[in-house]
Design a protein around this nucleic acid. Structure first.
Lengths: 257, 257
DNA sequence: AAGTGGTCTAGACCACGTA
DNA sequence: ACGTGGTCTAGACCACTTA
């Protein structure tokens, strides 16, 4: 404390948070290090445990630390990012036989695992129906939901929507879609991917997403609503990607005009 | 409660949060409505005020409600999004004389205001230096920091970095950069924007950003690190955009291959 | 003045992880 | 068994807003 009874302008919880933040920035606490326990912090700063706890919560909210039940609070390591973006859809990539996700995992020396959660005929959500140009009051789409893991850590959730009238009875209804994946099959159906439109937003996860992605508090998600357009600029596939923001960066490289 | 002494598996704070969440989803509470006060919630659910408060915090963290000191807790209205993306840099747009930000504001019937916070010669941060291909141990760049407002609500913070050796003594050092803005001046210096590279990430705001953007708790930011490449594919301008995620969507449309 | 959220205290018990 | 975070209680005072 600077003086015996400064009202200090700042609430105690924020002063404690700031002290810890500085220690992290100065490198006194580095990635992976354990913070003093809440009880110890409370004693050190002459506050109640709840106050120390509030300070820790502020840091967690900012993404600087993660609390682990029964173990302690740890400085979060800056995560190496999975990078996706404009080349996620390029034919060149498709022809390697490796999906962009597997490529990224490989680049990081991690093991990719993809889990097919479901392939079902459904009524599309309104935003999907609008983009795929199908009715939203009818079971007009096939919904493929996949979860992606790197070394068994969940990284992204992808929901792909295709027209039911096209997918019906094809490999598009199967977990294994054959060479070059769904885009290979869609090309056989006459859809050459010519343009893509990606709509990007960020938000806090829903409880379901937090559970599925095993998200620590304070980590947002990146949502990409992707539309593939064919040679006639008609949409033939729409996907919703939900990424952990702390493990994902998006990269878009494009020509101007 | 379902039975007098169910341990209920769920903590009380989460059960209260879930009840409120359902009420919002069912439309019993709609955008702008005030939630019962923390003291009332506590009484209704037979819990301590701190427990009701924790429930409200969970909803705020998820972005569903916003607390306003002295007034109450309100259901947050879904914000109409400002959309930016691949056409943010197109020459066509530039020639209207309206910046993309002004166009967006106009589309929403809002008044755009741009505040120039500073134009200073600086040592570039490492990520900027790397992308602009300038030394990071030297005052090699000019940093222009602008804040953007719509109807006086802060929407985005933009830091633009230019080479000092090029900007020195030109309009690029002035608040008013002349026709077609900085890109107009850079074109006169021989840089035709040919490609752009946008690196996108999402994270929780730093305290400074939270204050500058007047961010309610639980709203993440979208960060775009933008690089402009000229006809020789050399970088000549790098900008860091920090957007309120609850008011911003990004749109990228691009050709495949 | 009254009501609201913001912060804080000093306890308590539970659930989890490690030794 | 012990230390950790997770949750909760029953109070208290402060800061802000509205009437």
């Amino acid at each position: 404390m600077t003086s015996p009874d400064t009202p200090s302008a700042q609430p105690a919880s924020r002063r404690i948070a700031q002290a810890l933040r500085s220690a992290i920035e100065r490198g006194e606490l580095s990635a992976g290090d354990k913070l003093p326990s809440e009880r110890v912090l409370a004693e050190q700063y002459g506050a109640a445990r709840n106050t120390a706890r509030e300070a820790v919560r502020l840091l967690a909210e900012q993404g600087l630390v993660t609390a682990r039940h029964g173990r302690g609070v740890f400085v979060r390591a800056p995560q190496r990012l999975f990078r996706f973006g404009s080349d996620r859809y390029s034919r060149k990539n498709r022809e390697t036989g490796l999906t962009p996700f597997r490529l990224e995992a490989q680049r990081q020396g991690k093991t990719a695992r993809i889990e097919v959660l479901g392939i079902t005929r459904e009524v599309p959500p309104p935003d999907i129906a609008e983009r795929l140009k199908v009715p939203s009051d009818d079971e007009s789409v096939v919904h493929r939901e996949n979860h992606y893991f790197a070394d068994d850590d969940p990284v992204q959730i992808v929901s792909t929507y295709l027209r039911w009238d096209e997918a019906q009875g094809t490999l598009l209804m199967q977990p294994k879609t054959g060479p070059h994946g769904i885009y290979g099959r869609l090309e056989e159906l006459g859809h050459t991917m010519t343009r893509v439109r990606d709509e990007i937003s960020a938000r806090m996860p829903t409880p379901r997403e937090a559970a599925l992605l095993d998200l620590p508090p304070g980590v947002p998600v990146l949502e990409v609503l992707h539309t593939s357009l064919d040679q006639e600029l008609e949409p033939f596939e729409v996907s919703r990607y939900v990424h952990r923001a702390d493990r994902t960066g998006l990269l878009y490289e494009l020509p101007v005009e």
